[in-house]
Design a protein around this nucleic acid. Sequence first.
DNA 1: ATGAAAGCGCTAACAT
DNA 2: ATGTTAGCGCTTTCAT
Lengths: 329, 329
Amino acid sequence: MLPMATIRDVAKLAGVSVSTVSRVLNGGVVSPDTEARVNAAMKTLNYRPNRLAQGLVRQKTMIIGLIIPDITNPFFPAVARGVEDAAGAREYGVLLCNADWDEAKERFYLRRLEEQRVDGLVFAGPKLSTSVLAELPVPVVLIDRSYEGMDTVWTDNFDGARQAVSHLVSQGCSRIAHIAGPDSSPSARERLKGYQHALRECGREEDWVYIQEGDFREQSGYRAMKTLLALRRPPDGVFAANDLMAVGALRALEEAGVRVPGEVALIGFDGIALTEATRPRLSTVVQPAYELGRRAAELLFRRLEGDASPPEEVLLAAELAVRESSRRR
Amino acid sequence: MLPMATIRDVAKLAGVSVSTVSRVLNGGVVSPDTEARVNAAMKTLNYRPNRLAQGLVRQKTMIIGLIIPDITNPFFPAVARGVEDAAGAREYGVLLCNADWDEAKERFYLRRLEEQRVDGLVFAGPKLSTSVLAELPVPVVLIDRSYEGMDTVWTDNFDGARQAVSHLVSQGCSRIAHIAGPDSSPSARERLKGYQHALRECGREEDWVYIQEGDFREQSGYRAMKTLLALRRPPDGVFAANDLMAVGALRALEEAGVRVPGEVALIGFDGIALTEATRPRLSTVVQPAYELGRRAAELLFRRLEGDASPPEEVLLAAELAVRESSRRR
DNA sequence: ATGAAAGCGCTAACAT
DNA sequence: ATGTTAGCGCTTTCAT
């Protein structure tokens, strides 16, 4: 538990100057003989270079920030893991922040990360005005939300939703409902648009009456489905804007004794593990969550390495996974 | 995107010395008048104190490390969230590391965190020898594994397992199997012991022949259950050492057309969200994952505040959640 | 109440 | 090939 050795201690023990030690640390020219002595000294002192001090002079901390809404939400662990793997490979650390879909918290953590002088930032919070993000003194990559002039990586939510609805149509559904996400979420809005577009394409705008807004949580899917079932002519196909709400809808269906997919075909969005555990297994539009995180971090590192090309918008494909809850034929 | 203002810039603009600025920053004695001028200067320069520089002189970084096996494993997000909440409340940041149950990675990240001069560490990796952890120059709190002389917080795995088995007995099971976790996991070993103990208590050691070892993953639970079903006299009750393996077992049971809980009663361990999505819903022993993380972090902060009392072992209770997969009467 | 100056542990010119 | 030195941005005595 003694104070950690400094570069000075190493220098003294090895009988050289601190700059020589710094050189062996950072790969400068050093005679093999001194290098050996320095390394020996480092070992006996169990020396660890101080990243704070390095950061202060080099003006980089080798830390990036990651702001997400909530790591306990099943969509984000894979995102975080993707970011961490990309960072770890480059000797970067990741500072994790849970902002709870709360603008004040997003702001709070942003400030903290500024004070920490993180070298860059992956931001997956939906609330904070993008203009404040654009003014940050470090590169930022957005996840799941675009903004003119900033780097973004996101899933093609519009197309994913379109695929889901087309699939329901192909299964013979004639009244297709949508349990939408909160209007404040950019990706929820895209999914809603994709739903509307797909129906318009086959001349069925009248189904739009079956739109219910939820908040991405299981309970809201349950309630929305209850509402839909109480209609005079209930839908026979339901596209939920995320899996959690789809699971809630499934529960409502089950309680009402409605056969799935027989009477109502159901599909979700995200591709979380839960979808494989339900019976029937839940069809879903799989988001490449890990890739989302990894690509975002990799784009960030390209910026950190000096790439000054115009802002990129990386659009990752969503993939339809047809399982039991929507398969009728 | 201009370089961030320093304390010097603030001092100059406010017409005072840097030490005065530092005083208003840290609550020293300053005349109301100068304080106002300094604050104004900070605001116009959008000044953010540099935590690196502060850390270098104060010898603390306000960062703690968190080493876990894998954030995408459904048990850990809640743990991480607990740690983060406790840390955030004290203005600390959390550096997240995924060590993948891999000793080399645990070692690697440990080194990284040392270099980062984190003020302390919550360690949930199962592999690394505890003696190296005990020698760290900063306080460490272990999760889910105890070690003589170190702070630990963990779930009462032994008692949780005992509860699970007693419950199966009470449901009339006469041949109770255990799908164990890997022997390398301390908590898996405790659960196995709890299973054995409970059976011994009612004189049924003979059931021990029904022990199958898995690796905590879904697939291994599936395979273990297959093996058990192939037996001449298969078990009529199964306690899986975690929920993921229980889900796998459930799948095997379903494929074999075995009624659950009618012919085989099943119970898992952990209390992950998946257990509510299966049909039948999976009974389980709920671990207080969030609390595990929160308490670990809080114990760590007590140490950081100078508490030098003897090492603590915090044992959190596991709670039996009886759902459909094991309820027979 | 305020300022001057030393130093936290390191890197990066600049010398030699 | 190696050493000397001036900072990086801050806190903290010690003066005044």
